[in-house]
Write a protein that binds this DNA or RNA. Structure first.
Lengths: 138, 138
DNA sequence: GTTCCTGCAAAAGCTTTGCAGAAGA
DNA sequence: TCTTCTGCAAAGCTTTTGCAGGAAC
């Protein structure tokens, strides 16, 4: 997406479109790898000479509050982030550590929510082995 | 459960039944509050005079490896633990922070796992407001 | 010009590690 | 007795905070 469009999206959500926020948002929309703050930091510091860790955290928290990105609480070590804010499932491979997306019908998932509770976000995720890490079948 | 039975369970899983491990395991089986390591530490230090944080972490990791307890990766701040190792869903209230259990059919949840992936653990959890924190209906 | 943001340094909080003494088999 | 575990101190990591300079409007 054009940087100008990204800036417009931020403005539309009441977020001042600074260079840094646009870069973080752009990274999350382009890379569907559920990166950690550190991964984003390493990638962006290569591109931009000065880009502090603090700013990554500031930008991520601002984008989270605006609802433009999502936090993925799957890995115990660190928080992961996702530019895809639509409801979808996650699969984490215990061998290679990669996190995969898969489609789920949000209405079906929500139907499991116990009565009396007001659901705001639903999460379905599996851990196991991905096809690449499984031994080939005979 | 009797301490002797707890010790037998640990032994059966190849875990040497020390006083500390029995106490941690007992706590998780008795309290269904998905406590953090710190919560367990605070509770047990009141009961036992000497009980270090390191030992809590050591015991939890040992019990995890033995499959006697489960880690609940729901809160971004800290790891939570659960003495209930059967498949079940979680609901985290954004107001009071409490984590509730609810029943789900493991087979139904597993059916959402994408083909080609080998599922080892399935997790379904919601965030939102619990009945106590919701405004009363008219 | 005023407000809000960036980024450095420092700190805070959770978890792990190294190692000497102690407990379990 | 020999192995394994405990627990203190210290360190490692992720994330947050305070604050001065700078960018955005």
């Amino acid at each position: 997406m054009e940087r100008q469009n990204l800036a417009a999206m931020l403005s539309a959500h009441g977020v001042r479109p600074t260079q840094q926020r646009i870069a973080v948002f752009d990274y999350l929309l382009t890379h569907h790898t559920h990166p950690s703050a550190d991964t984003i930091y390493n990638a962006l510091s290569r591109e931009y000479p000065v880009f502090s860790r603090t700013t990554i955290y500031n930008s991520l928290n601002t984008l989270l509050e605006a609802g433009l990105i999502r936090a993925v609480t799957i890995t115990p070590e660190e928080q992961r982030f996702d530019g895809n804010t639509s409801d979808h499932g996650h699969f984490r491979c215990l061998s290679c550590g990669e996190i995969f997306d898969f489609e789920v019908d949000p209405a079906v998932i929500r139907s499991f929510c116990p009565s009396g509770f007001r659901e705001e976000q639903s999460n379905l995720f599996f851990t196991g082995r991905c096809p690449r890490c499984l031994p080939p079948r005979h």
